[in-house]
């Protein structure tokens, strides 16, 4: 597996210019994700209006893979319903561990397919999945609005 599959141009581009990279003062969901192994961390903000994710943003410290994955996630999720966003998170998390037929889904995945290269680099899967796990937590209704869950110890 070559490095080019991991560091595709679109990933490098999102790393250079991450989308929705800002705090969100009027967010009604906020979640902290972190990867204790490497010290990467992400803060994810969502504004959910009814059943729709009307705005999503993030900030954090991390490698190119984690940053690009978070950036692409925010761009993909904004405007989706909560159910659609949850389904997408399931799909991407499966893709990251090689459990999705990327060729079959390529059209639906669009640019997110670029993240599939991660599945061949087991040490980097956590980098790419961090933002999507944070999204899952943020969309979980049992997670109180605005409250960041304690990171696992």
């Amino acid at each position: 597996m070559s490095l080019d599959a991991l560091y595709q141009e679109i990933i490098l581009e999102h790393n250079r210019k991450p989308r929705n990279f800002r705090e969100m003062p009027d967010a009604n969901r906020k979640v902290e994700g972190h990867n204790p192994l490497c010290g990467d961390q992400v803060t994810l903000w969502l504004r959910v209006d009814g059943d729709r994710v009307v705005d999503v943003s993030f900030q954090g410290l991390g490698c190119a893979i984690s940053k690009a994955s978070a950036s692409m996630m925010t761009a993909a999720v904004k405007g989706k319903t909560v159910a659609e966003a949850k389904a997408l998170a399931d799909e991407i998390l499966a893709m990251l561990i090689g459990k999705l037929d990327v060729e079959k889904e390529r059209q639906a995945l669009g640019s997110l397919a670029a993240l599939s290269g991660v599945s061949k680099f087991p040490q980097r899967v956590k980098c790419a999945s961090m933002a999507w796990h944070a999204l899952e937590t943020a969309l979980d209704e049992s997670n109180p609005e605005g409250a960041a869950p304690e990171p696992a110890r």
């Binding site: 070559s2 490095l3 991991l6 560091y7 490497c38 990467d40 991390g62 490698c63 190119a64 893979i65 680099f121 040490q123 980097r124 980098c127």
Partner: peptide, 11 residues
């Protein structure tokens, strides 16, 4: 990021 660097070096 050092993680990306380590992956590139590993290659």
């Amino acid at each position: 990021h050092p993680h990306d660097l380590a992956t590139i070096l590993d290659e």
